[in-house]
Design a protein around this nucleic acid. Sequence first.
DNA 1: AATGAATGAGAGTTCATTCAT
DNA 2: TATGAATGAACTCTCATTCAT
Lengths: 204, 204, 204, 204
Amino acid sequence: MSLPKPAAQSAILSAARTEFAQKGLAGARVAEIAERAGVNKQLLYYYFGSKDQLYRAALEDVYAEIRAMERKLELDQSPPEEAMAALVGFSFDYLAQHPDFIGLLNHENAHGAQHVRTSPAIRRTNSPLVELIASTLRRGVRAGVFRKGIDPIELYISVAGMSYFFFSNRLTLASIFDRDLARPEAIDSYRRHVIATALAGLRR
Amino acid sequence: MSLPKPAAQSAILSAARTEFAQKGLAGARVAEIAERAGVNKQLLYYYFGSKDQLYRAALEDVYAEIRAMERKLELDQSPPEEAMAALVGFSFDYLAQHPDFIGLLNHENAHGAQHVRTSPAIRRTNSPLVELIASTLRRGVRAGVFRKGIDPIELYISVAGMSYFFFSNRLTLASIFDRDLARPEAIDSYRRHVIATALAGLRR
Amino acid sequence: MSLPKPAAQSAILSAARTEFAQKGLAGARVAEIAERAGVNKQLLYYYFGSKDQLYRAALEDVYAEIRAMERKLELDQSPPEEAMAALVGFSFDYLAQHPDFIGLLNHENAHGAQHVRTSPAIRRTNSPLVELIASTLRRGVRAGVFRKGIDPIELYISVAGMSYFFFSNRLTLASIFDRDLARPEAIDSYRRHVIATALAGLRR
Amino acid sequence: MSLPKPAAQSAILSAARTEFAQKGLAGARVAEIAERAGVNKQLLYYYFGSKDQLYRAALEDVYAEIRAMERKLELDQSPPEEAMAALVGFSFDYLAQHPDFIGLLNHENAHGAQHVRTSPAIRRTNSPLVELIASTLRRGVRAGVFRKGIDPIELYISVAGMSYFFFSNRLTLASIFDRDLARPEAIDSYRRHVIATALAGLRR
DNA sequence: AATGAATGAGAGTTCATTCAT
DNA sequence: TATGAATGAACTCTCATTCAT
């Protein structure tokens, strides 16, 4: 981490992330990843050992990235309601802008989270976002604007779920309801709905 | 469709549903499905033509099933808030009890909903649940208990999302938060959280 | 065994025997075996599962064959010295005519006899030849022409060794001594030497 | 050759000898040899050019070693029978103590002695042992204790064969006869058998 | 309706070797 | 003298699919 990795290594990681997000572990093609990265196929093995280990590395990479983003959030000074709205908004926006993350999570879940569960690197790092949610909740309760008894993890899951499902199932939903959910207005309208719903659930 | 299918055919369909739900289209093995169904591998081809068509059939099967369940709901007589709580609860419970459905949806989304989009059988059938939500919303607005301007599709997406994410990402979440989300109490607690959050968002 | 195997199966087995004998397990090429057998490469996997299992099958096949040959020997009526000379001669001649057997044994030994050791089919079957040697030894001792105290297994090993080494190392030896050991006269001369040496060691 | 080689070079040679002896030319891994020798993989290429040339070097090395040992034998003063027994014993003991030599020979034979045949270094050097056998035979014949007409090369082959086969096929034989041939007593007993058999074949 | 035999295409991976420093 | 990075060729094996009955 401290030494600069060879450029090839991060090119591979980046290509892998995209390919795995789109096609999953089984569906992804090693040759395709190599080509996207502009390197020889065997270099993947030189650096990562196997397709499986490359997948794991890509997964850890994407988790590290989102946690780095979360760590940048600074909302301690804002009023609790504003802060919470910002957190929900951040969560929504991050997914809106990182389809790779959704793709990887989708596949990971589809396979029982095997890799997440066995990756110390992922398990080790706490989620800064959940901790921010927890502290904001406490501030809101103290300020008398939020109900007591809200579980921060449950809150996180419901907020993440509302956003995640929208993006992960967007195409399925769009097809079934015959409504184009990719339009900026559609996204923005749903974003407001999510924030409103989340906050409504917190008020006394 | 109206005639009773040969036993072998539904055995295949059932095995396919499980296998595809667990491993996705690319990861599933035709040989494995045949073995689970207790039939010769070639029978799949005899009945369904190809792996892809079998996947599609399994997908349509699972959609038909959930819509049949939805169609049984009769909540016109209940007060709007009760009815809405029941709808949210139904949505949550169905996912709790049908991991196959989640698995298939996950894979489907992971691959751009290609099959859902091109399946007339799926697109043709409206979702009875969304229609029930819409009518219940209208009743609630009329009765003065719900806000105006709630979009039923957005409401459906947020409700489904809160539930779906919990079950689809349960293992990932359990691992990251180190909390066993499979315990009945954990499920029940989150169920109440979802219903409370959904309804809070509707009230005036 | 009781049902006639598909022709392809024994064609594969035969081709495998030759290829493995010539190049060993690591050096042999699955594609080459398939081509020699005139079948599709994947049929090997259909029938034998893997290169390793095919190697094992070929090894068992070759052992079964030599034991079948040994079982045909009937020397109970001959005088002990004649019988023993015949046994030594048989052992020599068999190797002379079955380079595949030598090749397979060579490779097997070179790798610690891993497959022989773990093949119940090979370990189960006793060597009829060693039993014949033992009984002939006993007859000779009783008749007063052979010494007491000769161990039949040691005798077998020394006899087999004299023959085996000649054929297995023939090319190396020929090169070092600059003498063509493939000439029929050379073979015949050495054959007589082996029989004479073996019998000399037995006489009182 | 006359100058002391760099340490790395002989470390490679030694590692190569072991690896090739155990796995043969095809089965040996260049990376494994480098690791055993504690050097970078590319150094093998720097010194030896290719895997094949390294194999050849290891083979020549091992031949040079055995010939150096043979050259040390001084038996001109002993009575012919004693001298011959010592020669047979030496041949047996050398193999007992140099499994690498057996391994390399095994592989070499398994592949038609290609490298021995084309190595001037190996072909050039006569075998001191065979010459000693020849001279001892002549002395014995002159002394009236050995038969006339024994071919020294045939004698050498049979003696080497009895020993070589025991060690090279030890594991196979042990497995088939269910007798532990690695026990010191088993080795010693067979050693006596070999010497007795060889000498019996020479007596008038 | 049902099956064992057989196949073609392509996937992941290994491995000796070379490049560049 | 020594090495980390990179590559091309080839190999084993998997898998959906078809043939023939």
